[in-house]
Write a protein that binds this DNA or RNA. Structure first.
Lengths: 250, 250
DNA sequence: CGCCGCATTGACGGTTCTCAACACAGGTGG
DNA sequence: CCACCTGTGTTGAGAACCGTCAATGCGGCG
């Protein structure tokens, strides 16, 4: 199995987490074409304002969706792990108001919108799974918005660490108590809406409380329960159960 | 035409803004069933955690989607105007992690998911329009996230006022310089992630700068250009143009 | 070795929160 | 008609959170 197919397989697993797909439907997803591209860290994969014709599937590394302000400051609005289709929503809305950047060295597969659309139309169950995947993306976005509006930086950082643990565990990259997270403090600040300096201080507060030990490469959670308490973390918003049990199989 | 149909018509206009639909497809949307319900202000229409079987179409008034914290504080994550389907995404994900509340006295129509799903499957173009509508919702969410992370309260308030002007103008409720906005300062604070006290002070700053005059019922923008400058407002994220020109008509 | 990006620390200032008080309008019951 | 109540808007003072600026240390890499 080549890298592109390995990425598709992870993407398919992600879909199957929330949607039932028949063998035919699964085969249709697995037969999507794509071109593998390697990028170093800190590169823009999609520039804000582009009109795009291909979706970006993360095979390895971490990518970020961001919004850019006039002064050049960035707010990262989503983190994308291996198996995530960064901009599945771009299939419906090709005019990118956002950008995508590689946060760590990243291997991606570029998949033509046209092929994705054809699968969605030919297999309504897959189309529904795509729609649902977009909704999951929005659910995470809403939770981040709520955290940014109502929680302290320390609590937001704890929340993000809890979330990344669950998502990476699902991907088979470590488990929820210890996992790789190759992000700089500056990038974490761009996610959480704080400056690098303040992120550093928030992190030290978590270390001081003996909740977590982490560096630029990996996270070790010392007291998961305590961390979840600081974060008020409830993984429900990640929608980890089958959603189609309520929708007549679609 | 009854109220339910009037609401559907506005919803259809919203879809047509971004997606082309054939006469048959439009008729399918207009034939969706629904039950009209009136609610006073400050009522929960959907409780967080519910499993829901009907989507909520706003016919009149303003509704808000919110996330609730352990201490009872709310963060409003979306505002829904007449013609908006509050929780179209619930068709794909019926397990609500969010809640919906009426912010002003509101008339809604409750539309069975089942009917919406059937239309989406029978008419792939409509299904695609639904998906696209969900993406627009996410685009606004991302812009709000970015504002919350990177802008001052004053700038965020200015941004929200600019956005509401455009959205209400599209609805035929006033124009972008003067429009009804029946929200309390406390509710605006819940949208912008600030306390009512600080929202009041941010608003006074805008009044001081002679940018806007507003009360609990309506907004009059005195200097739209100045306001957009404070907000760094660019309406692109509202995706007001036809998106299907890039997607082969879907 | 020297360079560069990143983590860390300190001092200071601005933004926003909390707590508290008061004004005002609309609605309700006497 | 008036007294009262409640929700909302407004203002002030002090504290907590977070940003800015600046300097230092540290590790990887040429």
């Amino acid at each position: 199995m080549n890298d592109h197919q390995a990425g598709l397989k992870r993407f398919l697993s992600r879909l199957l987490l929330r949607s039932s797909l028949s063998v035919d439907e699964q085969r249709a997803v697995m037969s999507l074409p794509g071109k593998v591209i390697d990028t170093p860290a800190h590169r823009d994969i999609v520039e804000p304002g582009d009109i795009i014709h291909d979706a970006t599937l993360v095979i390895d590394g971490i990518a970020g969706r961001f919004d850019q302000l006039a002064d050049g400051h960035r707010q990262i609005t989503a983190l994308h792990l291996p198996g995530d289709m960064c901009d599945l929503h771009s299939v419906a809305v090709p005019h990118a108001g956002w950008g995508i950047e590689s946060l760590s060295p990243t291997r991606i597969s570029s998949i033509p919108h046209e092929a994705i659309r054809k699968v969605a139309v030919d297999y309504p169950g897959v189309g529904f799974a795509f729609w649902r995947d977009t909704v999951v993306d929005g659910s995470v976005l809403a939770k981040w918005l709520s955290a940014l509006g109502r929680r302290s930086a320390k609590s937001r950082l704890a929340h993000l660490i809890c979330e990344m643990g669950i998502r990476l565990e699902l991907n088979g990259q470590g488990d929820r108590r210890a996992f790789p997270l190759p992000l700089t403090q500056s990038q974490l600040g761009d996610v959480l809406g704080v400056t690098p300096v303040h992120l550093n201080r928030s992190l030290q507060a978590l270390r001081q409380d003996e909740l977590v030990a982490m560096n630029a490469r990996e996270v070790r959670i010392i007291d998961r329960e305590g961390l979840e308490h600081v974060a008020e973390f409830d993984p429900e918003y990640l929608l980890l159960d089958r959603q189609d049990k309520y929708t007549g199989g679609l």
